[in-house]
Computed example of a mutant assay.
Amino acid sequence: MTTPPTHIEIDGVPAGDPELLATLMSGFGHFTAMQVRDGRVKGLGLHLERLDRSTRELFGEELPGERVRALLAGAVEASGRRDSSARVYVYDGVRLAVVVREPAADGPGAPQRLMSVDYLRPAPHIKHLGGFGQSYHREAAQRAGYEEALLTSPYGDIAEGAITNIAFWDGSSVVWPSAPCLTGITMTLLEPLLGSVRRPVSLADLGGYRAAFVTNSRGIAPVSGIDTVDLAVDEDLMKRVYSAYESVEWDTL
């Protein structure tokens, strides 16, 4: 009898596929997250491009979009949730895991207060696994009464939220911080529709902005304050942002 090279137990029961589980537990990989409505996704091509680009960088192999699309469509159909939150994870050996869950709520998000933290993600251009630092700071922010952590450099340069991108309104332009960050799909869809610019933004600059909002795969929400600085919720700005996002067409899986 041949002994399997890896033995893993969960609550005392041997894992059905220990080699696969060991790969999933490695913490080395990347993913993308999306909202699915009636079997459709906004920015599907951007998600597929992100997965292929990161797979090439991390594992030296391509990841055909049609493979991802077929697995994602199959998982959504098998789940019985044509409205859902879905994630595609990619691991060594280009093994893919698709997770389909209950959908995030549609519509505008509640205003959020952010707590700045001295932390920048490693390899920020990749939506990678192993985000302990982000989770640690986000949990700490929420325990302190905030909704989200705002990641900054030691000098106060603003990069991104723990799980969001952030944009500021100076009265004429939507300003996305130019510090290294993950360029999110929602941000990518909105940026060309909003008269956007990218430039450095620091905590010391907050008094010069009229408003701010955050974006991620779950939606868009205004920012009501950062640390002790209050920011007005600009209803006209938010209507324009929501309208721009609603104008983006849905892609069929």
Rank of each mutant, 00 (worst) to 15 (best):
V99M: 11
R138A: 13
T23F: 04
Q142M: 14
R240P: 05
G93K: 08
R138L: 05
T23W: 04
E61Q: 15
P4V: 07
V223L: 06
V41K: 03
G43Y: 08
Y91E: 07
A70Y: 07
S116Y: 00
F132Q: 09
L58Q: 13
I185M: 11
L24H: 11
L203Q: 02
E62M: 01
L20N: 09
A140P: 00
A232P: 04
L51W: 11
D205R: 11
T2D: 06
V214M: 08
Y136S: 03
D230P: 07
R101N: 14
E148H: 03
G16H: 14
I10H: 06
L21D: 06
V98W: 10
P200R: 06
P64Y: 04
L63C: 07
Y89M: 11
Y136G: 00
Q134C: 12
G195Q: 10
G195Y: 11
C181T: 09
E249V: 15
F59G: 05
T188C: 03
G145N: 11
G39A: 06
T183L: 13
E160N: 02
V100I: 12
I185S: 01
R69W: 05
G43W: 09
V94Y: 07
A232Q: 14
L58I: 13
T6L: 09
L21F: 12
T183V: 11
A179F: 06
V229F: 12
V13K: 11
H47N: 05
I8G: 07
A211C: 08
G195D: 12
R37K: 14
L206V: 03
G184S: 07
G93R: 08
F28Q: 08
S85D: 01
S85E: 01
A78I: 03
V248N: 09
P222M: 04
R40M: 14
V94H: 04
G109S: 13
V175C: 06
M187Y: 09
D227N: 14
G60E: 05
S243P: 04
L206I: 03
E62C: 07
A15C: 12
L44E: 00
M187I: 07
A97C: 11
R240C: 04
L20S: 12
L58C: 09
Y136Q: 01
T6Q: 06
W169D: 05
V229N: 00
P111M: 05
T186S: 10
R87N: 13
L114W: 03
G43D: 02
P154N: 02
K239G: 07
E9C: 05
D92W: 12
D234W: 14
V68D: 05
M238E: 08
R199C: 08
R240H: 10
S202D: 00
R101S: 15
I220V: 13
R50L: 08
G131V: 02
V100G: 01
R82T: 12
S85K: 13
E57M: 12
T183N: 08
A212W: 14
E147P: 02
S247R: 12
G16M: 10
P111R: 03
G12P: 10
L193S: 06
G27C: 10
T55K: 01
G219W: 05
I226P: 00
Y245E: 04
G109F: 12
G109K: 15
R82N: 05
Q35A: 11
D230W: 04
E19P: 01
